[in-house]
Nucleic acid binder design. Structure first.
Lengths: 232, 232, 232, 232
DNA sequence: GATGAATGAGAGTTCATTCAT
DNA sequence: GATGAATGAACTCTCATTCAT
């Protein structure tokens, strides 16, 4: 268990490191940064359609025309906010594929789940507002939907499928259809993130305990004290 | 098992019956109905803020002014669509509390989960567009959020908590914090609904098998063939 | 000469009659008429690009939004002003083709020239502002250019060519290329219209004398008293 | 006839020479020249009001601000394009008045007309785009209009009046009001230029023949073979 | 001298809402 | 009850012009 934890911890930190390196590459003027920041805030507060460029300009402390020097249209501003975030979102999955040697760098499925949860929680915490915008707008922005399908389907899903299949062969995961396993797993993780960050952000959460509990649920279900006893 | 199934089946049908009785009480003119219907469609297609009342009027086949005879504002139209649906949403949980006698009318936790899933799937299927609107707008409409918190917190959550605690005492559910169990359970159910109805509605779904699998996951997790074998 | 004059007079009046019948067929609300009228004035005063819809609305005495109830765009308002005028412009030429019998209803080329000048002067006088807009915008509005080419090339030019060729055969017109004759003729007529209505509208014009003179020029040139004497 | 031709040819070339000497007097930086050139192109393509200074800057390959170093306003750029061209336009007429001796340096009115046409065609060909801008903008720019009236009325018209009166006395031109003669003459010339350069620039023109024909028209009209025969 | 980021007034257009019919 | 013409505020976006660098 100690070894596992160390490995996970390491996996997690690598992921985060990769995220960070991706993000600060573009040089922006302070005004552009202010516009982007104001856009994130107002889009996430009111939704894209109900946000007005004049309010964004005001919050950013620039003239309204300045927004349109950097972004030709309001929609381009939206995409400039969300698209890079989507790239960062898949970064930890994509970058793994290079470097090679070990394609599944996790000791156990549990280790994977833990690293996954910790990483996603960290990501969601850092990009909370952008994620909100993303989730709100994906039904209405075909461009976003296409990017999402392409990225998630061709990167994340494939990668998670590989990992899951790997541990299925090792007997750590039940011999049921992988898509169902993944759906169930992702539901549980996202369910936690939503409760944690969106529904009850002010509750006094013990993240480590809740993550452990959620992993327990995913691995052994909620059905009772016998199983419980074995694992706690 | 057979007996269980019959019971669940019955439970489910009762719930549906209750839903129906709630809905047709208001008398509406055909125009008002057309407006409501058009509102549902256009709000769910474009989102509330991006939908225009003139388009709704056109789709409904009425004059623009007619909408405002029935609904003072565009927002009132939105609420007239979503609020009743929210009432219907909690109906199966609320009505139970009357009639009394048996507060937990399920043979087992598994029976409850199955009834719950079947019922929610049915409900989501029937009210898909309204649910979309609801989910889209709840972050931006305080009125909706209040209604939701009040209804869900004070009705559904309380009731589900009761049921869960009941089976926790019976030993069918693990002795961990009930809120975590509920969060996990609801995540799994909603995850299935989303995949089923929103993400991949065109896939060839075997609902019964997927529901069984999801219940298996919820009860015993994904951790492997040994546990699997015991339960199937 | 007396007979000629009568015939011309008659031809001219028919043309005018035809013009009038074409114009008042559409029913318009007073507001729409005011918008159209204001559009004509302001477009002709400032040019299309430099005219603002807000100024048009103000001059028309309506709200700015009202313009866009009747005309989806500013450009549509422009075309709604100019296109019908173009139809009216070719009306006297088009309608001739029906009724048949006599395709060239003029006693002499001189009679034709006189009827043509009188008719065009009348038309230009009545539609001065619209013609200004038309001339100003035709280089920049492909739609206008297409309409103009189609109408003028396929209707007016063909018709005038027929008439000219007719009198060429009769020996009233020199045996030189018809296009050159037409170009020269139209230049002279338009030159008069421009001087008369645009360049020096305030001069004290004797239209009949100037028209006679211009016809003299077209028929016999400016070269001297001998020729002059023969014809006056 | 041979002699005439030589004289005209000479007259024409003198005029052109005068034009050239006028033009290269101002010293301009390459950037300013580029701005001027880009201004000419874009103003003539889109019209003054619809042209944007940013597009001009782009086409000129300079920064937006640079335009305003050389020309305080967009309108000043316009005038800097059109005004010098207007000066060049009247140059051949103005300069004649100096040097004196012979105020009417043409053997015949026909020689004058030919020299006039050839010269104007040459001028229009070389300054086509600027002339377009000039014609488009003169209705909307009082400054231009004043310059034009002053120059044309006080220089060209006076001079052409002198020439025409001279040949009227000699009996080469009919004894009708000079303004009408000039109007008619200029209409015919401009009509040719427009057809030649604007309406059908791609047609295969035989300029010499068309000019001869136009002069024929101006001198003897279009009225028939008898007159024709006398003059050809 | 040249730049181009920044401005803000004003452009065309949309839209929820009103009200006379 | 139902209409749809009319509104005017607010929207996104453009552009001539300024000015610190």
């Amino acid at each position: 268990m100690q070894k596992n934890k160390a490995a996970e911890q390491q996996g997690q930190e690598e992921w985060i490191a990769e995220l960070l390196t991706l993000s600060e590459e573009q040089k922006m003027t302070p005004k552009q940064l202010a516009i982007l920041q104001a856009g994130i805030e107002i889009f996430s507060e009111k939704g894209y359609a109900a946000a007005s460029t004049s309010e964004i300009a005001q919050r950013a402390g620039v003239a309204e025309g300045t927004i349109f020097r950097y972004y030709k249209t309001k929609k381009e501003l939206l995409l400039s906010i969300v698209s890079p975030a989507m790239a960062k979102m898949i970064a930890p999955f994509v970058l793994r594929n290079f470097g090679g040697v070990l394609d599944v760098p996790f000791e156990s499925y549990e280790a994977f789940l833990r690293a996954f949860m910790v990483n996603r929680l960290e990501f969601a915490r850092k990009n909370f507002k952008i994620l909100r915008i993303f989730v709100q707008e994906i039904p209405f922005q075909p461009v976003l939907r296409e990017q999402f399908i392409e990225n998630v389907m061709n990167n994340i899903l494939e990668r998670v499928t590989n990992i899951t299949d790997h541990f299925k062969e090792k007997g750590e995961v039940a011999g049921v259809p992988t898509p169902s396993i993944i759906r169930f797993t992702i539901s549980s993780v996202i369910g936690y993130l939503l409760a944690r960050l969106l529904l009850m952000p002010d509750k006094d959460w013990d993240d480590e305990a809740e993550i452990n509990l959620t992993i327990e649920f995913m691995l052994h279900g909620i059905s009772g004290p016998a199983i419980r006893r074995e694992n706690q």
